[in-house]
Design a protein around this nucleic acid. Structure first.
Lengths: 237, 237
DNA sequence: AAGTGGTCTAGACCACAAC
DNA sequence: TTGTGGTCTAGACCACTTT
């Protein structure tokens, strides 16, 4: 199994072996994998080697550990954050990660000058606002604010506001997307964000603004602004 | 400095110390920090502890190592998760999809007025262009054109141009990303694209333009324009 | 040849969870 | 009490870079 004379480090060889076993369902999701001691014996390697392997697998999101209990398979694919194009919800779901959306506030507001400009609207009119917090395993991951034209507001009892707004746009309202603009800036959290995300003042965030234009409307139909934990992509959930 | 009776692990204490020294400019960016042996002596800890500390600092993007030379300060702030956002390669690889990059053309060009505008440059100067086709299982998936300032061109024999340019930016050139802008427009292919991607004239493409700004430069450092098969992604924003 | 980081082992003690 | 993962040490050999 492991070639000690190979130029490939033992931990890398061991990692490949474990990944293959996970992908082939020999090690099933949520089930326990052999203990460190067992792996040391089975593959004739030292504990540091086993732990290096496990550390890498944990960082990539394949496994998670329970102190005093053992090591378990998290999923068959490594974790990434959100893809370059698709939505956060979609890309997390595609990897078997369940996210929870908690609605903080919703309703019609009268935007101030700054918000009008941020939304790239040409004139002032009221709009519908939705604020949500995205959570994974009870841990807050992102804060999201969405804005729509009031005339296109999503009626609360007709649509599930805890689902992807994007899917509502495309599938339920049957709109055709004409253009998407997006700006991403890394920055430090505000006091409010520190509280809402339960983080310190030095944890880096990604601030993402997104404008979605649909057929038939000159101005952006949907403006989204959200902050997400910078290290979200390698969190081992 | 380090309290061996504390409940905080030694590697965590050491990490805090190093981070503070980096942030306070005691360890300056790009300068070498003490060797592992020196840190072992100065803080009276074992090598595994030093290496655990350094490994965490490296993962967070604070430091980088040069084999046989030493360890250096990369930046004063940790790196955030831009990889999956700006690198198609990274996000596909994370799903276990292996892609192949074929270089179509490369070299220095003199941009015309339109390209200058597209790149968001303020004045005319020559630039380095790289055109690649991304393939999965021999099937063309995307056509990609990258543009850099000529002065920052990636020297062919130093970097692997079939890899993710974004990762070269972040990891090899050790640049800090300040902002990413992106525009996505769904559209039908041109005749040329139909030929290059081997598709019909009704296959939907996504045209993606991306500007990456890095610390120290006002204008975009990197301009990318690519088209990708629409079916490659679910348009679920 | 000397110095650096990369890999690896053997062994120790600890905190935590379950029986 | 037993077994798990968490931390830590001392020491060894290696590959790589510079002198």
């Amino acid at each position: 199994m492991i070639d000690k004379n190979s130029h490939t480090p033992l931990y890398a060889q061991l990692k490949d072996i474990i990944v293959k076993k996970i992908k082939s369902d020999l090690f099933k999701v949520k089930s326990q994998i052999p203990t460190e001691k067992e792996l040391m014996g089975e593959y004739r390697v030292g504990r540091a080697t086993v732990r290096k392997t496990m550390s890498m697998l944990e960082n990539e999101g394949y496994i998670y550990k329970k102190r005093g209990i053992g090591t378990f398979v998290a999923r068959k694919q490594p974790v990434v954050g959100f893809g370059p194009i698709i939505s956060l919800t979609a890309s997390l779901e595609a990897r078997g990660i369940e996210t929870e959306n908690v609605i903080i506030s919703k309703g019609i507001i009268v935007p101030d000058e700054k918000l009008i400009k941020d939304m790239k609207w040409k004139e002032k009119r009221s709009c519908y606002q939705l604020k949500r917090v995205r959570k994974i395993d009870e841990k807050p991951l992102a804060i999201e604010k969405s804005y729509f034209s009031e005339e296109f507001k999503i009626v609360d009892d007709r649509y599930d506001l805890t689902k992807s707004i994007a899917m509502v746009l495309l599938e339920d309202l049957r709109l055709t997307i004409k253009k998407v603009e997006q700006i991403i800036v890394p920055r430090l959290p505000t006091i409010e964000e520190q509280r809402e995300l339960n983080i310190g003042n030095e944890t880096l965030l990604l601030e993402i603004e997104r404008w979605i234009y649909v057929e038939g409307f000159e101005e952006p139909y949907y403006y989204l602004k959200f902050v997400i934990l910078g290290e979200a992509y390698n969190l081992a959930f």
